[in-house]
Amino acid sequence: MSDNFGRYFVNAIVAGLIGRIATVVKDEIEKAKQEISKKLQRIGIGVGLVIGAGIFAFFMVGVFIAAAILGLSEVWPAWLAALTVGGALLLIVLLLAGIGSALIKKNKDLTPHEQIDNIKSTVGMSSSQ
């Protein structure tokens, strides 16, 4: 009889501990969800502000381009000033597009070769197999 009592007692303690641990884990997961939700909301606000800044920057660039044309038109005819600023902008566009295109071509293969080789060497497979 006492042998069964000890077994039931240990089982009850273990079941109670497991239940308590499960409750704590569920509570912590719920708190983590709430924390992530708050952070995502703040990230969304931040993204909106950055987009707003980008819109203002777009118009600001237009104003600076107009100012450059007006400034150059003091020493050159207006058509030549506009053509010069347009040519400078064309050079910038071509330079950025060329660099961007080269980066895309260089990195278009998305296979993580280094990590695959690391995994193979960790597992014991050589890259020659």
Rank of each mutant, 00 (worst) to 15 (best):
L95K: 12
S128M: 09
V50R: 11
P112S: 00
G48E: 12
G124N: 03
V14D: 11
F9W: 12
G6M: 01
A88P: 01
G44I: 04
G44H: 02
E30M: 10
A82M: 07
I36A: 15
I21L: 06
A22E: 13
K38T: 00
R7F: 09
S128D: 14
S2R: 10
L40Y: 06
L94N: 08
G100S: 13
F9S: 05
D27P: 01
T84E: 03
K120T: 06
H113L: 09
I18Q: 03
P112H: 01
I36M: 12
I18T: 05
S127D: 04
G71N: 15
Q129T: 09
Q129P: 00
G86D: 01
S37F: 03
A53P: 04
M125K: 04
G52K: 09
G100W: 03
L91D: 02
W79M: 02
P77L: 07
P112T: 00
V75M: 11
L90D: 06
S127R: 01
K31W: 03
N107C: 08
Y8S: 04
K33I: 11
A66V: 08
G100N: 14
R20K: 02
S2T: 10
E28F: 02
Q41C: 01
F5Q: 07
A97F: 11
R7H: 07
L72G: 12
S73C: 08
K39S: 10
A81E: 07
A82F: 04
P112Y: 00
L91Q: 08
D109K: 07
A12T: 07
I55Y: 13
I45P: 00
P77F: 05
K106D: 02
F5I: 04
L40V: 15
T111L: 12
E35F: 02
A15F: 11
F58T: 14
G98Y: 11
L17I: 06
D117A: 14
Q115E: 13
E28T: 14
E35G: 05
G46D: 08
E35D: 06
D109C: 03
I92N: 14
I29L: 12
I55G: 08
G87H: 02
I69C: 13
L90R: 10
D109S: 01
G44N: 13
A12K: 07
Q129M: 04
M60W: 00
G87Y: 10
N4K: 04
A15N: 06
I55L: 15
E30N: 12
L83A: 15
Q41K: 15
A78M: 13
V85T: 12
A53H: 02
F9E: 10
G46V: 05
D109I: 10
